[in-house]
Design a protein around this nucleic acid. Structure first.
Lengths: 225, 225
DNA sequence: ACCTATTTAAAAGTATTACTATCAATTATG
DNA sequence: CATAATTGATAGTAATACTTTTAAATAGGT
């Protein structure tokens, strides 16, 4: 299997962490640490101790910890878009493309050998628990102007276009896609922590299958209205 | 119009803020301040300065600022449940009850004269931008054990029961309700800050009507599957 | 191999945050 | 009117989120 690198650009970092050993360690170990501690308790100081470096060195790669989170989440959405592009190659029927996209969104995330640097399982837990915090801030408008959310928008636009191919009259393609993307994370979080808020149950079998089933129902029923 | 008080209990506070002048000022002014500054920039110190009191005094009502946020969000969900109870009085048809609930969830929130203490418009903006932060934490399981999310669960259970009356075979009533509740906020946030992620547009008229329309489609199409 | 530019480590410093503690002044209650 | 509860004033602490400076290590070009 070929080893790949997602090209993340713009203002997602000060210095590209994929280019240096230290940068790669920052990304790798921050994924482990945010997963373990949660974003609130995670600090650059703790990360520096863990990777035997210093706060000041980390600040040369990322302006602050919020930007690092935005970077990780952007990486994740780029990865998902790549997987959807890959999985829908040579498939013409937009319904099947949409089905594949939903499956990829809903499914369990396992290590992707194409990206040995990144622990996708840990990153997925971060996405579930922390990704909303990237934009639920007072600086969202400035961050947006800087293009920090381009990866998410791109993915959303792609899937919305499948929906419009299926039903050009559907009024809310983007809203439906963002709803599905968000819901996929939310229900997994509830299933784990607030089970009375979800009907996904481990006792009903594979929780990711239930996720896929629910999202498919939600999306396809909405489109054919 | 009668003046009411929602009874919030348990571990939502150390000392009931509805019982004293200072407590009511804490709640009122924290709503204004969190709305203005965002939850991250909001501190008890700033609040104390604003209400001419001290940090230590505020800490006697709420353990920390996270608990205060949880309190405000719990108040909001209790208020919504009260409005739905009120609005569905004497209505037997579960479809109509569900429609009313969706309308109440989606609609613009205006000052409720029954609760003169609370600025519901500002509180609604807080709910949209900050409510997910109440449970997206590492302490969610302990907070849940303490019953902090009871108000939200109660509302969710109520609307899920309408859905089961309409279609007893529907497999995901709670998931559908939480999806709708979350989506209602998310789409309004996107419409304001990340408009390419939503199809709600101010140029299409009343944004809250679009919200209601989208949620109705989503929910009713899902149920009748 | 050597010079120079860049990168990193080490250390220290600052303002702010999220609390906790103490004690005196004020206010409510019986 | 006495006493208990509440609040205000003040101070203090550990941690956070940075910034700055300087020196050491490393890399790249000739």
């Amino acid at each position: 299997m070929a080893i790949l690198q997602l090209l993340l650009k713009e203002n997602l970092f000060l210095r590209d962490p994929q280019e240096t050993e230290l940068g790669r360690k920052i990304v790798q170990d921050s994924i482990m640490m945010i997963d373990e501690l949660g974003f609130e308790k995670f600090t650059f100081k703790k990360l520096a101790q863990r990777i035997d470096s210093t706060e000041a060195s980390i600040y040369r790669y990322f302006e602050n910890k919020h930007r690092l989170l935005v970077y990780l989440i952007a990486w994740y959405w780029n990865w998902i878009e790549y997987r959807i592009d890959f999985g829908t190659q040579n498939i013409d029927d937009p319904k099947r493309r949409l089905e594949i996209a939903i499956r990829i969104i809903a499914e369990k995330k396992e290590k992707d050998a194409s990206f040995p640097q990144i622990d996708e399982e840990a990153l997925y837990r971060i996405v579930i628990a922390e990704s909303d915090k990237t934009y639920l801030t007072k600086q969202v408008d400035e961050d947006n102007k800087e293009g920090l959310f381009r990866g998410f928008k791109s993915l959303c636009g792609k899937i919305a276009s499948y929906i419009l191919e299926i039903n050009p009259d559907f009024e809310y393609p983007h809203s439906l896609v963002t709803t599905a993307l968000q819901t996929g994370h939310q229900q997994l979080f509830y299933a784990e922590h607030l089970p009375s808020l979800s009907n996904f149950k481990k006792s009903n079998g594979d929780i990711y299958k239930q996720n896929e089933d629910f999202l498919k129902q939600l999306v396809f029923n909405a489109i054919h209205a």
